[in-house]
């Protein structure tokens, strides 16, 4: 039951995101670009940190 709610909740978030994306994409291409771009910037910065951790797993090494 709990799983079902999770799926329904996630589904709703997904639908909302799609509606928002479609509206922004139609009327405000730059707004759409900002949404996608910001998510991308945050994710890439995060990936950089994770990569750092894996680069430095063995010993300290140079930074």
């Amino acid at each position: 039951m709990g799983k079902l709610f999770t799926f329904v909740g996630l589904g709703m978030v997904l639908v909302l995101a799609l509606v928002l994306a479609v509206v922004a994409g139609d009327y405000g291409p730059w707004y759409f670009a900002w949404m996608v771009g910001t998510v991308m910037i945050v994710l890439i910065a995060g990936c950089g940190a994770v990569l750092f951790d894996s680069q430095h797993e063995k010993g300290k090494g140079e930074i």
Partner: peptide, 15 residues
């Protein structure tokens, strides 16, 4: 500092 630098640099290059 190294981790902060890394994250900020990647954040900044795209921005």
């Amino acid at each position: 500092a190294a981790r902060s630098f890394r994250m900020a640099a990647l954040f900044g290059v795209i921005s």
